[in-house]
C-alpha cells in the first residue's frame, strides 16, 4: 500500500475503512464493484490532491452496515465522511459503481462536491444495452481491452464473490429511475469518461448524463474497455487532472503545446 495510510472511522451506521495519501484539495476516489485499488490513476491523483479512498462496507471483507440498503444510503454515508474529514468540500473521481454513488452524492448533497470525474458510471445502463456477463471469462474480456495491463489479483475468490454480491445487493447494473430524475439537480461540473470498447456501460449512458447535467462534458477514451484506469492509465490520469485543475478551461489546449 506504500504511501497510503488506512484508518477506520465510526460514521453513523458503522465503521468505514478509508485509505488516505497526498496533499492538496481533498478528493474522494470511489471504487468500482471490483473493490478499491491503488491504480496508477489513484497514485497520480495523490500527487496533486489529498486522496481519500473509502471502502464500501461489505467490500474487501469489511463488515456490512445493515442500514445501508441502497446506493443513496451509501452516498449519504460518504457525505458524512466528507463533512467530517474533508472540510465539507471535495472533488470526486469515481469508477463504475463508484460513479453511481457519486451521482447520488452530487444530487443529494450539492454543497459538498466541487467537480466530478465519472469513469464509465454504473446505475444508468439503459435496458437492452450493455450489461455485466455472469460468466467470469466473458466478464473479464469485457472489463479489459488490454488484459495484459491488469494487475495480479491475489485476493481470495470468496472476497471477490462477496464484493460482487454487495454490488448485486444494490441492484447491479439496473437503470436507477429515481437517480435519472434527479440528474438535472446536479450542480457539480462533471466530466464523464466512456471507453470506446466498453460493452458494459454503453455510450447511451454518457449521452444521458451529458444531456441532463448542466455543467457536463463527455469524453471517449480510445482503445479502452470498461476498466479505464487499467486499459489507459496515462490518458485517464492526464485528462482527469487537467479537468480538476483547470475546470471549464480544460477544453482549451494550453499555449505551450500550441506552439510546438
Amino acid at each position: 500500500m506504500d504511501f497510503f495510510t488506512e484508518a477506520k472511522h465510526q460514521i453513523n451506521s458503522g465503521a468505514l475503512s478509508v485509505r488516505v495519501a497526498g496533499e492538496g484539495r481533498p478528493l474522494v476516489h470511489l471504487h468500482s464493484a471490483g473493490g478499491p485499488r491503488l491504480s496508477h490513476v489513484v497514485r497520480a491523483l495523490a500527487g496533486h490532491h489529498t486522496v481519500h479512498q473509502p471502502t464500501c462496507p461489505g467490500f474487501e471483507g469489511t463488515p456490512k452496515h445493515p442500514a445501508l440498503k441502497t446506493v443513496s444510503d451509501y452516498a449519504d454515508l460518504i457525505a458524512v465522511y466528507i463533512e467530517k474529514h474533508c472540510g465539507g468540500d471535495c472533488d470526486i473521481v469515481a469508477e463504475s459503481f463508484g460513479g453511481w454513488v457519486a451521482l447520488w452524492l452530487a444530487a443529494c448533497h450539492p454543497g459538498l462536491i466541487g467537480q466530478m470525474v465519472l469513469e464509465a458510471p454504473a446505475g444508468l445502463c439503459p435496458p437492452g444495452k450493455g450489461g455485466l456477463p455472469a460468466d467470469p471469462q466473458e466478464r473479464f474480456r469485457k472489463l479489459y481491452a488490454h488484459p495484459e495491463k491488469a494487475p495480479e489479483d491475489n485476493r481470495p475468490v470468496e472476497m471477490l464473490q462477496a464484493n460482487g454480491a454487495v454490488f448485486m445487493g444494490f441492484g447491479g447494473l439496473k437503470f436507477d429511475e429515481e437517480l435519472a430524475a434527479k440528474l438535472p439537480e446536479i450542480k457539480a461540473r462533471t466530466l464523464v469518461l466512456i471507453g470506446t470498447l466498453d460493452e458494459i456501460i454503453p455510450p447511451e449512458t454518457g449521452h444521458l448524463l451529458k444531456s441532463k447535467i448542466a455543467l457536463s462534458y463527455l469524453t471517449y477514451i480510445w482503445d479502452a474497455a470498461h476498466s479505464l484506469e487499467i486499459d489507459q492509465p496515462e490518458k485517464v490520469a492526464t485528462i482527469a487532472l487537467d479537468f480538476l485543475d483547470r475546470g471549464e478551461s480544460f477544453i482549451v489546449k494550453p499555449g505551450k503545446d500550441a506552439a510546438e
Binding site: 463527455l218 471517449y220 490518458k235 477544453i251
Partner: peptide
C-alpha cells in the same frame, strides 16, 4: 453523436 463530445486517443485529442 447526439451530444458534444471529447476524444482522448493515441494520435488525436479533442475536448
Amino acid at each position: 453523436e447526439p451530444e458534444p463530445f471529447g476524444w482522448e486517443g493515441e494520435y488525436y485529442q479533442y475536448r
